[in-house]
Simulated assay, not measured.
Amino acid sequence: MTTDAYRPSPLARADCEATEDGWTLVFTRDLRHPPEKVWAALTEPGQLAAWAPYTADRDLAEPGDVTLTMIDDEKPEDMAAEVVRAEPPALLEHTFGTGLLRWELAATGTGTRLTLRHTVEDRDWIPKVAAGWHICLDVAEKLLDGRPIPPIRGAAAADFGWSELNDRYAQRFGMPSTGLPEHLKGESEES
């Protein structure tokens, strides 16, 4: 399957909370798959490479040091990270640059309620982060459904509805939309 027919799903439940470390996006998605299957997509390097903006040098199911390789642009970049908590299949928490990702999985009948808490320093990043995770999780859901499409990352996401999602999430959070991140603008103009 290709990304040609991809269109973003409806907006997810999302909120923005002030924290002592900055701002936290609280992004909630209901998935049609059991927590164990979702957990594997969040922790196994091969599955991460199929949907996330990064790969990992090891399985994330155990606490400890890990190297995440950002692959959201044309220059992959290694980033030291740490899995802080791993409680299969319910809770995964790891550092992500200067931020923190906390993935909470709760069983809902035959599916999973996935809540991602992504902490960033600057509030202006919250809609951007929401738009990016929205697209990544759309791709993850197709992977889980057994109908994978290629990952949509970085500047390429602008061709698949990222700007509209960014604008809509900014509106939802009552803040101005500041557009594509500076480090991706040049790439978007080149494509």
Results as ranks from 00 to 15, higher is better:
127 P>E: 01
109 G>C: 07
84 V>W: 04
49 A>S: 02
17 E>C: 12
61 A>P: 09
125 W>G: 02
70 M>Y: 08
88 P>G: 05
27 F>C: 09
119 T>W: 08
90 A>R: 14
96 F>G: 07
143 L>G: 06
48 L>T: 10
5 A>P: 03
126 I>M: 05
145 D>I: 01
155 A>T: 04
29 R>K: 10
63 P>Y: 09
104 E>P: 02
47 Q>N: 05
95 T>K: 04
5 A>G: 11
86 A>F: 09
30 D>E: 13
137 L>P: 02
165 L>N: 12
4 D>E: 13
1 M>P: 01
136 C>W: 01
108 T>E: 15
49 A>E: 05
10 P>K: 14
74 E>N: 10
127 P>I: 01
38 V>L: 07
96 F>P: 09
120 V>W: 00
78 D>F: 01
154 G>T: 01
107 A>V: 07
56 A>K: 09
59 D>I: 05
36 E>M: 01
148 P>F: 03
48 L>I: 12
111 G>V: 11
119 T>M: 11
9 S>D: 12
128 K>V: 10
179 G>N: 07
153 R>K: 14
13 R>V: 10
42 L>H: 14
73 D>H: 09
153 R>M: 07
191 S>Q: 15
52 A>P: 05
62 E>L: 15
102 R>P: 10
108 T>P: 08
151 P>L: 12
58 R>E: 08
50 A>Q: 15
130 A>R: 03
80 A>H: 03
107 A>W: 01
84 V>I: 11
168 R>Q: 14
15 D>G: 15
19 T>D: 10
6 Y>E: 04
83 V>W: 06
185 K>V: 15
110 T>N: 09
140 A>N: 07
8 P>M: 03
38 V>W: 06
34 P>K: 12
141 E>P: 01
35 P>E: 10
104 E>W: 02
79 M>F: 00
24 T>W: 05
165 L>Y: 12
83 V>M: 07
147 R>I: 00
70 M>P: 03
9 S>V: 12
22 G>N: 13
12 A>T: 12
54 Y>T: 08
93 E>L: 04
37 K>V: 03
170 A>I: 08
